[in-house]
Design a protein around this nucleic acid. Sequence first.
DNA 1: CTGCATCCAAAATGATACTG
DNA 2: CAGTATCATTTTGGATGCAG
Lengths: 125, 125
Amino acid sequence: MTVSDEVSAVRQAFPDGIFPAACPSRVVIDHVTSKWGLLVLLSLTDGPQRWSELRRRAEGVSEKMLAQTLRTLEADGFVHREAFPVIPPRVEYSLTPLGEELGAHLVPLMGWVARHADAVVAGRA
Amino acid sequence: MTVSDEVSAVRQAFPDGIFPAACPSRVVIDHVTSKWGLLVLLSLTDGPQRWSELRRRAEGVSEKMLAQTLRTLEADGFVHREAFPVIPPRVEYSLTPLGEELGAHLVPLMGWVARHADAVVAGRA
DNA sequence: CTGCATCCAAAATGATACTG
DNA sequence: CAGTATCATTTTGGATGCAG
């Protein structure tokens, strides 16, 4: 075993070590690891945030992609959207309990990447 | 703090909570969380594997994308490629020490997703 | 068997203008 | 402020042929 005990969890889900194309995990993985999905989820681990704040923190995201990402994550049950009927409009996004669980796995991953990214990029001739 | 201590690691890297577009982490994240990068890395946590085996396990990947993914991960220093000068050709891919570290974070994530994917997908009306 | 190169189709993404 | 609509662009994917 090269990694750890958690491997068994993956093994249970994929006994023959194959990741089926039709597997529901593929869908979720695609959403979570999408270009902006990860950044949005990570931002939200800091607590509820407004649209404009998310747009600012996930630097480079277009309005279209942010809207799409948020709607996807909301449909997946990771993100909660709450709109306040005021003028000007105010909408707050936050993680659901499920989203918090997911974030608990994402944060260490991002932490590791942040620590090693410079070395990795530097190593690419 | 909504998630855990590891948050501080991310905070250190991104003090103002902004994920800069030009950040090296973006590049690494894009590779690691690419559609096939994740599956290839996950497969390799089982140990060294040949091209044909990876192609079979990451169900649905085309030759073009597998080749591209492997070259990217190799350039990043996550994957080691060893070609044996035999006929017919035999090429084995494995995780580098860096890749093992990364895999250690990816496996728990995938485990969690595998356990929740069905519920998530079912919940999408 | 393990790839790389090329062409073409399709999907994801982005810039911009506009609305409640 | 928080989006939507539209169009242009980029990226991705599949099919095919070929080489070591």
